[in-house]
Computed example of a mutant assay.
Amino acid sequence: MAERERRADAVANRDRIVAAARAELSESNGDADDLKLHRVAKAAGVGQGTLYRHFPTREHLLAEVYRAELTQLVDTVAPLLAEHSPLEALTRWLHRLIEYARVKRGVMAAIEVPAWRDLYDGQHHRLDEALETLLDRGKAVGEVRDGVDAADVILLLGALSRIPGAEWNARAPRIVAVIVDGLRRPA
């Protein structure tokens, strides 16, 4: 029983560390260089030793933040479709994707290229599948234009990577609005 409690405590510590790192990244506008591990440990309510036991390097922590962010983004598809029309669900999901993109941008800047490539290659299909589900539902009810697939939208979303950090909050939602307008089935 004590072993299970310790494991549950370790999982809770790990989750708090990832959440604290995510919050720090968000506050720093996705700038992973501003991510201070001692602040993450303090915000998570753990010692630095606990942080380093779970995440031996900044890269390990950032990779886990990215994975967690992607999982949260993918996991929002079903609830959004259950509560909203397909186009509204897609729109809300794309706005949630703005936060994912901010985190991804910070992680990409901080992790060496080979490590980033490995991380991205192992995960990107999940994003494609989530987006394809939203698009297919929208097409099925006539809200989303035919002939558009996830790859098309992801190419358009690449514009987010070109937004200067200082302009992110103003421009990212406008870009998403333009993309959604382009996805609407013509009258």
Rank of each mutant, 00 (worst) to 15 (best):
A177E: 15
I154Q: 13
D152F: 13
L90Q: 07
E64F: 00
L73R: 00
R171T: 15
K104G: 08
G106N: 06
R92C: 01
A140V: 05
G122P: 01
A82R: 13
I163Y: 09
K139N: 06
T71I: 03
E69D: 13
L97R: 14
P86L: 09
A63S: 12
V113L: 12
L94M: 14
D121H: 13
T71G: 05
L81M: 12
D149M: 01
I98R: 06
Q72Y: 06
R126D: 14
E132S: 15
A159C: 06
L134D: 11
V144A: 04
E143D: 12
R67G: 02
V176Y: 06
M108K: 14
E59I: 02
V65M: 04
R145K: 12
E99N: 10
D128R: 15
L156E: 05
L119Y: 11
V153T: 06
L156M: 14
D149T: 00
L157Y: 04
L62F: 01
L156Y: 01
P79I: 07
A89F: 12
I163L: 04
E167T: 11
E112T: 11
L61R: 00
R58K: 15
Y120Q: 11
A68H: 12
S85K: 09
A130V: 01
G138H: 10
P86I: 07
G165L: 09
E132H: 10
L73N: 01
T91V: 09
R92I: 02
D75V: 01
R58N: 07
L155S: 11
H124K: 12
A82S: 13
L73H: 05
P164D: 14
A177G: 11
L87K: 05
L62H: 05
Y120G: 03
D152C: 05
K139R: 15
L119H: 08
V74R: 02
A110Y: 04
L94I: 07
L94P: 08
A89G: 10
A177H: 04
I98E: 10
G165E: 10
V176G: 11
W93Y: 01
E69F: 01
P79W: 06
I98T: 10
D75T: 04
A140P: 01
Y120T: 14
T91F: 01
Q72M: 07
D149P: 00
V74I: 10
H125T: 15
E143Y: 10
R105T: 09
E88N: 08
